[in-house]
Amino acid sequence: MGNLKNAAIAFLAPLPSIFFHLSFLRHYRLGYSFSSPPPSDGLWGWCFHHPLLLANALFFANVDVLFWLIGVLLSNHWLIDPYWTVIPVMLIHYYASHPLAKADAARSAVAVVLTWVWSIRLTHNYFRRERWQFGAREDWRFNEMRTEYGRPWWWISFFAVYLSQQIFLIGICLPMYAIHSSDKPWNIWDVAATIGCITGIVVAYFADTQLYEFVSRNETLSKSGEPMVPNLDKGLWRYSRHPNYFGEQLWWWSLFLFAWSVGQGWMFVGPLVNTLCLAYVTVLVERRMMKKAYREDAYREYMKTTSVWIPWFKKTSEVPKAKSS
């Protein structure tokens, strides 16, 4: 019953912004034409002339405020996690459908398809990890902050969980806006962006699958009373401590190349901020890994020999040699 309730919440939660945008498009198509553009005043006129501001306003009202209220009522801010995989799809379709949108048809189509593939991959990984349950648990980082802040967490969560997500998501999705703000023809940078995006998706998929299989195997060993394997050091994880993070970063930086190809190089700030944030998360994850006594020594050795993000060959561990008698 709880899973069905949370599933209903997840499907209903984004409807206000979807209905608002559809109402705007309907109003525009019925009331205006390119020979008679909408006025600059009034709600619909503002929506017409400010697509990026409208995206932020809808995000603030529907995600920051509504999702936050749902999280406070449920005492669980799980809803933002699955929507990290959905909001970019919603944003790219919003930018593509806005009346002011203009884009090279090939660039737009490729970006839309790639965003859907990225979203399906990440959504599948999220629900596989959560055993196909809606709202079964909260992100461990939010849970730790809940414990750390105590009673004030109900209002701190608005800024820490939701408003911060708006900055990250709108920022890293800026190339989707750039793609639909220029009809500059397809070029070599678009080819590089496409190859990079596909590579990032593939790397992240295999890394997450290998991690899922490792965790599942350890859960089975734990239930049977057998010692668990202390560390994942196979497949892509042999060459990188966080190949899933590397694949995800490769996706976002490659998406930025689409913005570069239409002359919007300043949009590198989006993936840069995301990378800096992920660097901090990496530190938190590795500290958490070493809190478990059965894997602490193995993970320390793993850190000495294995690249953090970018897959690379193993380093030789500097083990002191025994002195000869």
Rank of each mutant, 00 (worst) to 15 (best):
V202N: 09
G171L: 01
I87G: 01
L52T: 04
E144V: 05
A279V: 12
G135D: 04
K234M: 11
Y299L: 03
S261Y: 04
M176V: 04
Y205K: 10
C197F: 11
Y95Q: 03
Y32Q: 07
A96D: 04
A10P: 01
K234T: 14
G45E: 02
C47L: 10
S261E: 09
F48T: 01
T123A: 14
L163E: 09
L211P: 04
S108A: 15
S40T: 13
P185Y: 06
L100K: 14
V229W: 00
G265F: 14
L255Y: 01
L79K: 03
R238N: 10
S40I: 13
W252M: 01
Y83S: 03
I179H: 04
P37T: 10
W153L: 10
A178W: 05
K315W: 11
Y149R: 11
A193I: 13
R146A: 09
S181A: 06
R129D: 11
P39E: 15
G42I: 13
W116H: 07
E213L: 13
W140R: 08
K102A: 09
S224P: 05
F59H: 02
F134G: 10
H27T: 13
N125M: 01
G31T: 14
N6M: 07
W266Q: 09
T306D: 06
L54F: 08
P51N: 03
I156W: 12
V86G: 05
F48P: 07
V283T: 08
S224H: 08
R131I: 08
Y95R: 02
Y299G: 03
L236I: 06
